[in-house]
Amino acid sequence: MSSVGIAQALPGRRRFPAFRRLATLLGVVIVGTALLVAIFAPYLTPHDPFAQDLNLRLIPPVWMEGGQPTHLLGTDQIGRDYLSRLIYGTRISMLIGVLAVITSGLIGITLGIVGGFYGGRTDDFVMFLITCRLSIPLILVALTVVALVGSSLAVVILTLGLLLWDRFAVVARTTAMQVRNLDYIAAAQAAGASRVHILVREVLPNIANHLVVVATLEMALAILLEAALSFLGLGVPPPLPSWGLMIAEAKEYMFFSPWVIMTPGVVLFVLVLGVNLLGDGLRDMLGADLER
């Protein structure tokens, strides 16, 4: 029995399915909740997220001294209800996460599959594009575009979508290369299927599991980047309640009432964590190991 035989005979690396299932479940719960909150935001908010009331400025959350039960998470510097703004902020984050990923997915997957499947000069060119994209400083370029075109939700989505396609392309390319040499592709070619048909009907479904995992990673990244852009004042324009923007607006008051930056930061962190947990769970389930 060779060492290979021994490795195969092993019961597989110990995986602690219970722990992992719990982590995945947590991810599903977080992302699911965020999705529901985003969809049903108008029905969930106790107050109008845009309504200002200068008499009710910087009320702390209900569990702190001076908190009021009508404003569970307190109010911001111009008296807007924090909870309501956070709920609407979920909408913005989810919207940006999903739409930016769809945009970048379309670009990256197309490039990656074409390069990986055709190889040769086509592939060289795709690799070149990926290298160029990676060498461009992401945040800086996004900031510049938003500054020049003008900040709006659509601009942020489009900018991030146009920038975040690199990992899609890398993974799609590698997996398409592996798939290209498999028997069923040869069979499809022998059967006279057209190239586009083979790419869309045969290759794409077989690399979909890897791409789903990338999609979660990119969604998490898009959400984080939007927050960072908005924080720097060149993302979603005020008065929209983006979490990053909320942190930026509250920054001046954080020395006196630190909770103003805590709540939006924590929900941002939890949502991104949830998306990542979901991605890890999918990676396990679908057997897509991106690091090898």
Binding site: K251, F269, L273
Partner: peptide, 28 residues
């Protein structure tokens, strides 16, 4: 498991926010 969990937490951490929290906590 613990180390991989740390990696996940780090991945989800918004840098600018962590900076502000550290300023408040360690600086102030």
């Amino acid at each position: 498991r613990g180390i991989m969990m740390v990696a996940l937490l780090g991945q989800a951490m918004p840098g600018f926010w962590l900076g502000l929290v550290m300023i408040v906590l360690l600086g102030l």
